[in-house]
């Protein structure tokens, strides 16, 4: 039996990779994709806990379901925004979206 820590470390590393991508990439869509990675990492962790820990059966899994649903919604809206931005500016550079500066 693989210990719980293995799964958690996997989730953690995946999360870090996703974070790296979110911070480092310049294309909005790329950022959204890496965001999904982070969601997945969280899902793994939740499922692992649900499997191993004594917290009530199935709760973690249910939570993952909802994360899935909401992540999907969020991706849809985010991408829609991205497309709208693209239509406006012909480019998807995150650095150019700095209207909130100052």
């Amino acid at each position: 039996m693989t210990p719980l820590q293995h799964y958690l470390v996997l989730a953690g590393v995946l999360f870090a990779v996703g974070a790296w991508g979110v911070l480092a990439r310049r294309n909005i869509i790329m950022v959204v994709m890496c965001l999904e990675l982070m969601f997945n990492a969280v899902n793994i962790a939740l499922a692992a806990f649900s499997n191993y820990a004594n917290l009530g059966a199935g709760r973690g899994e249910a939570f993952v379901f909802f994360v899935l649903a909401i992540a999907a919604a969020e991706v849809a809206v985010g991408l829609a925004i991205g497309i709208a931005m693209f239509r406006l500016r012909e480019r998807l550079d995150v650095d150019e979206l700095d209207e909130m500066k100052g």
Partner: peptide, 14 residues
Amino acid sequence: IQAGKVQGYLFAMF
């Protein structure tokens, strides 16, 4: 720090 770039803010939060 307040350049308006979201990733900058994210980085700070991170």
